[in-house]
Amino acid sequence: MIELIQVSKRFGDALAVDDVSLSIERGELCVLIGTSGCGKSTTLRMINRLIEHSAGEIHLEGQPVREFREEVLRRRIGYAIQSTGLFPHWTVARNIGLVPGLLKWPRARIRERVEELMALLGLEVEEFADKYPSQLSGGQAQRVGVARALAADPDILLMDEPFGALDPITRESLQDELVRLQARLNKTIVFVTHDMDEALRLADRLVVMNHGRIIQQGHPLELLRRPADGFVESLLGGADRGLKEAALLPVSQRMTALDDAPLAEQRVSQQATLREALSIMLWRHADCLTVVDAADTPVGQLSLRQLVGAGDARAAAGRTDTDQAAG
């Protein structure tokens, strides 16, 4: 869907992006992460030509981005940023309908699309449609920003630190919202963040950048287990990598079938993460949990020994490409 081929970007004598090659598949959520100034936002903005690349090629579905008229390209690609970029004197509904309006959609179709997206993002039409950005909380404004980016139903969505300015609770809520939306809409998303927990939680493909270059890319579990070098290991959390891995794996992957032994008093959902299960064990001083389904019916058990056991089906399935360093 998106391909960068030996792409570089210079600002005067400074090399911001250095010979980057990256292929992003249709429907993939690709997260670019690295320290400040590593080139991740510049890389993102070159995709929709907000910044022009200095060398190399960038293709969308096999076509060079420079063959598109800039305004046509940007209307085909949704773009959400940290500051939302909402027009302060426009209502929520008008902000969301911006791109469909530019595309000359009929008013009835725009209204229908705006209402559809507001419902999808948990914004009651009656309550929010006629409000102005200054009347919204940070989380509500960010939801409007995402809705506007999705308004013309683009195949590609670029997100540059979209949740970076939010408090932890709101940020986690919007991460959940994005995961839910992606499962439903299956967009191709390129997401920039400096928060590793956010990156691990969201990414199908994790791309680590440093000094304008890609150091390693692959599925989050692959990078956690086999970091390419000390920089990647440190960025992933160093000695905390085991806990970060546990936050990616569901209890259902480590639980065992019920036996004749009495059920453990403490319970955990089969959809909870191993990290959440470990937290319950530590908090409740328990070394075994009863695993329950959505109806609170026991379906298995999880011991501390099983929780820390090696291997998991998700990594074995090879959900994405193996680690690779881009030089």
Results as ranks from 00 to 15, higher is better:
L102C: 06
E25R: 15
S23K: 12
V190C: 07
L4C: 02
K104F: 06
Q182L: 02
Q182S: 01
E124H: 11
K244P: 00
L248I: 07
R49M: 10
Q182I: 03
A93Q: 08
S83V: 14
C38G: 08
L121C: 10
F128R: 02
I96Y: 00
D167V: 00
A141K: 10
G122H: 13
R76T: 06
F191Q: 04
G327S: 11
I189L: 00
G27R: 06
C288R: 15
R205K: 13
D176P: 01
R113C: 09
D240R: 15
L235A: 07
L120R: 15
T297S: 08
A239C: 01
F68Q: 07
K40Y: 09
L73Y: 10
I81F: 05
S83M: 11
R226F: 04
A257H: 13
E57V: 04
L4Y: 05
F128K: 02
D160G: 08
F68V: 04
E124R: 15
A315L: 12
S173P: 00
L117A: 03
F87R: 05
L166N: 10
P220I: 02
V292Q: 01
A228V: 11
G327W: 05
S252K: 11
L174K: 00
A55H: 05
R10T: 04
V190R: 06
L282E: 15
R69L: 10
G138T: 14
E115I: 01
Q142R: 08
R225N: 13
K104L: 13
R76K: 14
A317S: 15
Q63P: 00
A147W: 00
R74T: 12
I24S: 00
L304V: 13
P100R: 06
G12W: 00
A199K: 01
R143P: 08
A108H: 12
A108N: 12
L150Y: 01
K131Y: 07
G218T: 03
H219G: 04
A261N: 12
I58P: 06
T193D: 08
G212I: 06
V179K: 14
R267S: 04
L98Y: 14
A325P: 05
S173R: 15
R26P: 14
L123C: 10
V208P: 01
I214G: 03
D287S: 14
D160S: 09
V31E: 04
R148Y: 01
M118Y: 05
L4N: 03
G311A: 12
E115N: 11
G139Q: 09
L278Q: 12
F163V: 05
P64D: 06
L121F: 11
A326M: 06
A93R: 09
V292T: 09
R205W: 02
S83T: 15
G122K: 10
H285V: 13
S134Y: 12
D197S: 11
E127H: 13
E265I: 08
H219P: 00
E127F: 03
V99E: 05
S173A: 14
R45F: 11
G242N: 12
I169R: 00
R75A: 14
D18S: 09
G238S: 09
D321E: 14
R111V: 06
L206K: 05
A316T: 12
F11E: 01
A228H: 11
I214D: 04
L181P: 01
A165R: 08
